[in-house]
């Protein structure tokens, strides 16, 4: 397992996670460098979603969810921070697009501010909306319908709206939990392009069960199996010369 020498942005140390007594993650160690796209792949039930839900501390909200070990962001232990700050710094996009149904497109983008009761001047909020929607490659499509409900958009547009919503909080890391699993192929490829562009602005951790997707978009890839991190390294290397037998089997479609 290759440990990078450069100072990592995110570092997981002996991370274990549980649902009640059931252990979902087993002593996972890995680190993520700045401005990279990292894919986390593995068969379903391997704990990949739980892993990223630990990173923004959403896992502990699920009934019976607990975690052990530590996660460092810029050297700071996330467990020492409050969840408000953690989730401000680490944004998340979910499997299914989930814009807030009561809010307009505009409001959805600045939902983080509205929800958290953070007052910002109108001019700034306009800037944030345009900037975030542009980064999410959605601005041109919706700039004339900002006052329509978010649910009015197509599935792929909704998902990009959700990405814009996460970007609006100016996060350091963006977690994507199988962001294309509910989308059609065309919308999927738009999201994939977007992910590659986005790494200029934000470091991305993406869960996927789609091997080809991991190959297309990510710089590094982590392969997980039964709650363990089996292999982690440069995507190119892993896809050409996997070190672990299980990785090879997974990549060649033997299971999962």
């Amino acid at each position: 397992m290759s440990i990078k020498t450069e100072k990592p942005l995110l570092q997981l140390n002996n991370l274990s996670a549980y649902f009640h007594d059931k252990r979902i993650l087993k002593d996972v160690n890995f680190s993520v460098e700045n401005s990279k796209v990292v894919s986390i792949m593995g068969p379903s039930g391997c704990g990949k979603t739980t892993l990223i839900r630990c990173v923004n501390r959403m896992h502990e909200m699920s009934p019976g969810g607990t975690a052990a070990g530590s996660i460092l962001l810029d050297g700071e232990d996330l467990n020492q921070l409050n969840t408000i700050t953690v989730r401000r710094k680490i944004g998340m996009v979910f499997q299914r697009p989930n814009p807030f149904p009561t809010m307009t497109i505009y409001e959805n983008v600045i939902a983080g501010y509205l929800l958290n009761g953070i007052k910002i001047p109108k001019k700034l909020s306009l800037e944030i909306v345009e900037d975030s929607l542009s980064k999410a490659a959605l601005w041109d499509e919706v700039k004339d319908s900002l006052n329509k409900k978010g649910t009015y958009l197509s599935g792929g547009q909704q998902q990009r709206l959700c990405i814009a919503r996460a970007l609006a909080m100016n996060p350091e890391i963006l977690l994507l939990d199988e962001p294309t699993s509910a989308l059609d192929p065309k919308a999927t490829s738009r999201i994939e392009e977007l992910v590659v562009q986005l790494k200029k602005n934000v470091t991305i951790l993406m869960v996927t069960h789609n091997i080809a997707q991991a190959a297309r978009v990510s710089d590094d890839t982590a392969f997980m199996y039964l709650g363990e991190l089996v292999e982690y390294g440069s995507t190119k290397e892993m896809f050409t010369v996997p070190k672990d037998k299980r990785t090879e089997e997974y990549l060649t479609g033997k299971f999962g």
Binding site: M61, F94, N98, F100, T102, A111, G112, L115, A166, M169
Partner: peptide
């Protein structure tokens, strides 16, 4: 539940998620 999750993922506290997402919805 995914709408509530979205709100939590943006850093909303319990109360804020109730006040601004659950109750209005």
């Amino acid at each position: 539940p995914d709408i509530k999750e979205a709100a939590y993922s943006l850093g909303g506290t319990h109360w804020e998620v109730q006040r601004k997402v659950v109750i209005p919805t």
